[in-house]
Amino acid sequence: MAINMKITTLELYGDSKLIINQLLTEYEVRKDDLIPYFRLATQLLQKFEAVTLEHVPRKENQMADALANLASSMALGEDKVANVPVCQRWEISLITEMLLDDTNIISVLPVYTEDWRQPLIDYLEYGKLPDDPRHRSEIHQRAPCFLYYKGTLYQRSSE
């Protein structure tokens, strides 16, 4: 997404000291199943003029810890496939042309149901607010915390 938005300087914060140091080439990538991810990350990082990589201990970043735990709980074997339903328009896009053949892929399918995000998407994309004054005020207040980009709603970071 940062590449598509023509961002030239990138600051990355990660809770894995091993991964950050591998990307900084201070540590060698020894696990064969991580090498394709390392290559992909390296290719992507080369597209920026300046990149800062910084380790944030998990104790200092509970959100990153929760996401890391979710990702590790979804780890699959080579012969396993998992379909994870996601709410309408919330899809995880993979850069398939950059993925190597030996990379595992998790398929994600959208679920076409109305949820709390749809009014935010309608407001951010079309400037449309709900008819109910209470919901109208709520959407107006919450919208600055989100970014709608290429069909996906992202929550803005406070950093």
Score class of each variant (00 low, 15 high):
44 L>E: 11
42 T>I: 03
23 L>C: 07
7 I>P: 00
79 D>V: 14
105 I>T: 08
30 R>G: 02
35 I>L: 09
102 D>A: 03
38 F>G: 02
131 D>E: 13
119 P>W: 07
89 R>H: 13
128 K>T: 14
43 Q>F: 05
31 K>H: 06
38 F>M: 05
105 I>K: 12
116 W>H: 12
60 E>Y: 04
17 K>W: 04
42 T>K: 14
16 S>N: 00
56 V>W: 11
91 E>K: 06
2 A>F: 15
14 G>N: 02
126 Y>K: 15
136 R>E: 14
29 V>T: 04
22 Q>K: 05
94 L>Y: 04
74 M>Y: 14
4 N>E: 09
53 L>Y: 04
39 R>P: 03
114 E>M: 11
1 M>T: 06
47 K>S: 12
28 E>D: 01
107 S>V: 10
101 D>R: 12
95 I>A: 12
79 D>F: 14
30 R>D: 04
6 K>L: 03
151 G>I: 09
21 N>K: 08
118 Q>T: 14
120 L>M: 04
62 Q>L: 14
82 A>I: 10
53 L>I: 05
36 P>D: 07
14 G>A: 00
117 R>D: 11
143 A>R: 09
99 L>Q: 14
139 I>W: 06
26 E>T: 10
11 E>A: 01
153 L>F: 05
111 V>N: 08
72 S>H: 06
37 Y>C: 01
84 V>K: 12
113 T>L: 12
34 L>A: 03
103 T>P: 06
77 G>I: 02
154 Y>G: 02
44 L>H: 10
145 C>L: 13
110 P>F: 03
6 K>S: 05
56 V>E: 08
102 D>V: 01
2 A>N: 06
44 L>W: 09
142 R>V: 00
117 R>L: 12
64 A>V: 06
52 T>A: 03
151 G>T: 08
2 A>R: 08
157 S>I: 10
20 I>A: 02
88 Q>D: 11
20 I>K: 02
42 T>R: 12
123 Y>R: 07
110 P>M: 03
19 I>G: 04
28 E>K: 05
119 P>I: 08
62 Q>V: 12
114 E>S: 12
153 L>C: 08
91 E>A: 00
57 P>H: 04
13 Y>N: 02
102 D>H: 02
7 I>W: 09
89 R>V: 05
125 E>K: 14
94 L>W: 11
109 L>P: 07
4 N>K: 06
40 L>A: 09
10 L>Q: 03
78 E>W: 15
68 A>V: 10
5 M>L: 14
99 L>Y: 13
39 R>H: 14
57 P>G: 06
98 M>T: 07
137 S>Y: 10
59 K>D: 09
18 L>I: 07
114 E>G: 02
90 W>E: 15
10 L>H: 04
114 E>T: 13
148 Y>H: 15
108 V>I: 15
127 G>E: 09
38 F>E: 01
153 L>V: 08
79 D>R: 15
107 S>G: 07
